Computed example of a mutant assay.
Amino acid sequence: MPHQNLIRRLLAVSRLSEAEQKALAGLPYAVRNLADGDIAVHQGERPSGCTVLMSGFLSRQRVISERNQISAFYVPGDIPNLHCLHVPMMDHDLCSTGPSIIATVGHVALRQVLRDFPGLTYALWGESVIQAAIYREWVENLGARAALPRVAHLLCELSTRLQRVGLAENGKMNLPFTQADLADACGLSTVHINCTIQELRRRRLIDWQGQTLELLQRAELEFIAEFNQEYLR
C-alpha cells in the first residue's frame, strides 16, 4: 500500500492517532510504474491529485538556460507536489530517477480527510515545512560550498532521509543515480562529479559499487560537509 510509506514518514516527525492512520490508509489511489527518466507530472500541468512516492526516487527539475537543474530528490513516503492543493499549476517537472512506483491521491478525497482529521493537516503542514527547509539547505549548499563538501552534504542528507523510512542501514543504501543526475543536483559538470566521487573513494569515506552506496566514515563525511540533520526534523 502506498500509504504505508507515507504513514511511516509522518510518524518520524509527528504523532498520528490510530484513527488518523486508518483515514490515510483508506484514501483511494491510482498506481503508476515509471521507468528511469519518465515524467510523473509535467511543468505547466494542473494535477487533480497529489503524488505519493511508493518506491524509488523522484527529482524536481527544470531546464534553465539549456541546462537541466535538479532542485530536489524525493524518497519513498514523500509527497512531492503537496503544494498543488493550494498552488494549482506545476512550475517544474517531477521526473523518475531510476525506476519508481507512484500513487496519485485525488485532491477531493485528500481535502475531505484533512477536514475530518485536523491532526493530519498539522502533520502534512509539518512535512511541507521540512521540504522548505531542505530546499533552503540545497540553495546554501550550491551557493556556498566547494565541490567535495557539496557532494558529501547531499549524500549525508539522502542517507538520513532514507534511514528514517527504513531504506538505509549502517550507512548503506541503494541509489540508482547516474553521475549526470548528481551533476544536475550539485551544479557541477559530470567530469567534476567524477573527480569528486573518486576523491571521496580515495579518502575511504564512501564505497560505491553499482547502485549500492555505503558511507564508510559518517562522522568524517559530516564534518567535511558541515552537515547538521536538525533541518530534517
Rank of each mutant, 00 (worst) to 15 (best):
N5M: 15
I7F: 06
L10K: 01
L11I: 07
V13D: 10
R15P: 06
R15Q: 11
L34C: 05
A35V: 09
I39F: 00
V41C: 13
H42A: 15
Q43E: 15
E45L: 05
P47K: 00
G56Q: 03
F57W: 02
L58W: 02
R60C: 11
R60F: 13
V63T: 10
I70T: 08
F73H: 07
P76F: 13
D78I: 02
P80C: 02
N81C: 00
L82F: 05
M89Q: 15
D91I: 07
H92Y: 14
L94C: 06
G98M: 01
P99F: 01
I102W: 04
G106Q: 08
R111T: 13
V113P: 00
R115G: 10
F117I: 04
P118R: 12
G119S: 04
T121N: 13
Y122V: 12
A123N: 01
A132H: 09
A133P: 03
Y135R: 11
W138I: 03
L148V: 08
P149D: 08
A152E: 10
A152H: 02
L158A: 05
L162Q: 09
R164H: 05
L175T: 10
F177T: 10
Q179F: 14
C186P: 02
G187R: 01
Q198I: 04
Q198D: 12
R202L: 08
R202Y: 09
I206P: 12
W208T: 06
L213P: 09
L213T: 07
E214P: 01
Q217L: 07
F223L: 15
E230G: 13
Y231R: 02
